[in-house]
Simulated scan of single mutants.
Amino acid sequence: MKIITQISLFDDTQNENLGDLERLQKVFENLPDEKLNGKAIQSYARRISEKNSGNRGERDANWCQKNYTTTKPDGEKVVKTKKWFGFRLHLLSDATYEMPVDFEVTKASNSEVKETEKMLDNIKEKYSEKLEQCRYFLADKGYDSTELTEWLTTEGVSQVIDIRNMWQGEETKQFKNTNIVYAYKGKVYYIADSGEKIELIYKGYDKSRDSQRYGFHPKYHDKRIFRIPLRTDLRIFTKVARNSKKWKRLYKKRTNIERVNGRIDRDFQFEKHTIRGLKKMKMFLNITFIIQLTLAKSKIESGITNGLARYIA
């Protein structure tokens, strides 16, 4: 699979007979690589409203608390807590063009991973041919799930998802009955007879064996190649190796999606809104994304294929 360029997707000779809504749908359907993001949106209310509050009351929102663990340069771990009353926007976006692909709005406490699986199942059912255009799926460690990883692998999508440490007290695990051990973040080592732990260099993905290839640094004058099948642990061993430059480059694209969140908050005033209720929140977000896609459509029709997410030419 490869990313189809924007200019070939929206050739005027192919679209001249389409109506405005059909053209807008093509913008929505043909965005290539996807990134998942869960965004907290507070309700205008601060608690569930009384029964006699009328139509302006809040009866859908609930509380959620999320903990973020960061590591200081000295290695100290710091836990930051975010707590809010309201909703959660589950947003699937294109990481290249910074455009929405699909979304759902739920109560704040709904599981990010479960809602993601529902959205992906929906895309597979309705736009299966479009899913084939997606090469990579980017997400933070909140979406690190065996079930999600297996789903993406089955669909041929390479996952670029930060990983949680689910090992209890173990620094490394042995690969079969060999001198090879690996860490949960994907680093691979060779244990020499002397006991020396030598970090191996990633040598690329072996498509014929669906495995990662590792070898020694040239200074060791050892040309042996070791292959570790991805099925050893799909969360750790991915088509794009976690310790490769390509993985780091792709993962940095997540910052593009932070700009999507910034536009929602800043340009559409979701930081300072007066919305109560799940139905109203969904309606306003629908309008927000329709506006974004409509502006992108107008740019494409004018021959502009770069900066589709910007509100100026």
Rank of each mutant, 00 (worst) to 15 (best):
F289D: 03
A95T: 06
E301D: 09
Y205G: 06
Y251G: 00
Q174R: 15
K282I: 09
K26E: 14
T149L: 13
T81R: 07
D94P: 01
E150S: 02
I41C: 08
G204I: 01
T71P: 05
E129L: 02
S49V: 05
Y97V: 12
K253G: 05
P229Q: 02
S244N: 00
A139F: 12
S43M: 01
Y143I: 01
I161T: 08
E98T: 09
L18V: 13
D60K: 00
M1S: 13
C64L: 10
Y68N: 09
E125L: 01
G19W: 10
K299N: 06
E34L: 15
K253N: 10
L250T: 07
G54D: 08
D193Q: 03
I275Y: 08
M281I: 00
Q159W: 07
S43W: 03
V240I: 15
Y220T: 00
V181I: 15
E125M: 07
M166Q: 13
L92Q: 07
K203V: 05
Y68G: 11
K39Y: 12
L295G: 04
K83V: 03
G169D: 05
K26P: 03
D60Y: 01
E171S: 14
S158H: 08
F103M: 06
G75E: 05
S93I: 07
I236Q: 06
Q212W: 12
E132R: 05
D11T: 02
L200V: 01
H90R: 02
T106A: 08
Y44T: 04
I180P: 12
E170G: 11
R164C: 13
E171M: 13
Y184L: 05
S8N: 08
G186H: 11
L293Q: 04
T274W: 09
E132N: 08
G54L: 08
I312M: 11
E196C: 01
N37Y: 11
L308N: 09
I123A: 06
F268P: 10
I291V: 14
V105Q: 07
D206W: 01
K253D: 05
Y251E: 12
V188F: 01
H273G: 01
F270L: 15
N52L: 11
M119L: 15
T71M: 06
R231I: 14
K246P: 04
M166K: 15
G156C: 00
K299G: 01
D265V: 12
K246R: 07
E22P: 11
K118V: 15
Y189T: 02
K187I: 08
G156N: 11
I290H: 07
K130G: 02
I264P: 09
Q42M: 15
K2Q: 10
G204L: 00
Q159G: 10
K82H: 14
T5K: 08
L234R: 09
A183L: 00
R242E: 02
T116H: 08
N261P: 04
